[in-house]
Design a protein around this nucleic acid. Structure first.
Lengths: 188, 188
DNA sequence: GTCTATACATGGATAGAC
DNA sequence: GTCTATCCATGTATAGAC
């Protein structure tokens, strides 16, 4: 389906609502309105709300796979790249991830968890590979989670955690981890 | 209201449902059933669903304040204590926190965010105080968030993040951070 | 492919008996 | 204090016209 007409637009609107206002706000009607179509129009493309969720999850897999390919080509400064990406917000992967995360949080979409696990697992594997120090890789991965939940959704219906790290705070954080990496003789 | 009869039981059930099955599953009927009363019975104690949420938030404030007092008396090994608490699950503070967090995630309770912020702010302040190194304190706090979201709710409708750190992985993580703390000459 | 109208289920909240 | 019955709003999904 190359043209995709309104289908992609509907999916975009669905993701946006999920991330910004939570799963409960992403009703069929609200999504339709946000996408500029009617309920009936939406339900032509997605026969049920579950199909919308499935499509969002499928998109996450696709986007994550693309990003993983690109990331594989620049293993320099893995720590910094990973931690900065964790707070970066707005790019397709982040939106897709946030959307599926909202689905998971709602407790109504068991399919969401495995998808998220797969994405995260890929990251940890990549980090372990780049750093050559499993414990350090895990530390960085957990830190990334903390940053993500703390910053990614702030303002929307998302995480809480520590207040969004300012540029400077983030720099200090990265510096501290790199200090540790050097001490342990990690690769990056 | 010292006896509190069913009131506390209802609030307990509400928190449990919020943490384990998400906000959407915590309907008045479901909460009533879980607490062993009827809808009408519940609505005698809490005139509306919003009052239930308010009560949960109020409880969080109370429980957090109690824990903060206790924690202030043992500033030894702040890093280890904090990180181990982040993955500890089931104690009153954790349940209360998870419940309010679920409320926040749903996007329907603006009162939840300030409450969570207050709690987290208290932790960061305590850590900064104990370590005497603001950047390190933030690192530990963010790490705690990562652990919390990764582990606290797993199995329920909660976070995702990295798979629940095993005992050994957690030990390694703590060791790594302490290594860094020693390097930077932090107090704990 | 998209719309309107409508059927049906669920959840929140009220009224009034016990 | 607790229950049952009922009302009303909202959300999903179907039917059929255009």
């Amino acid at each position: 389906m190359p043209p995709a007409s309104n289908r992609e637009a509907i999916l975009d609107a669905y993701e946006r609502l999920l991330v910004e206002d939570g799963e409960r706000a992403a009703t069929v009607e609200a999504v339709a309105r946000a996408a500029g179509v009617s309920k009936g129009g939406l339900l032509y493309h997605f026969a049920s709300k579950d199909e919308l969720a499935d499509a969002a999850i499928e998109r996450l897999h696709r986007v994550a796979a693309e990003c993983a390919e690109q990331a594989a080509t620049l293993p320099e400064g893995a720590i910094e790249v990973f931690l900065r990406d964790a707070v970066k917000t707005g790019d397709p992967l982040d939106v897709s991830l946030g959307a599926v995360h909202a689905l998971h949080q709602s407790g109504r979409y068991p399919q969401a968890k495995p998808a998220l696990d797969a994405v995260v697992h890929g990251w940890v594997a990549q980090l372990t590979d780049a750093l050559g120090d499993p414990a350090l890789a895990r530390l960085v991965a957990v830190l990334g989670d903390g940053l993500y939940f703390g910053a990614a959704f702030n303002g929307g219906a998302g995480g809480v955690a520590t207040p969004p790290a300012s540029e400077q705070e983030l720099d200090e954080l990265i510096a501290a981890v790199q200090q540790l990496a050097a001490l342990r003789g990690a690769k990056a």
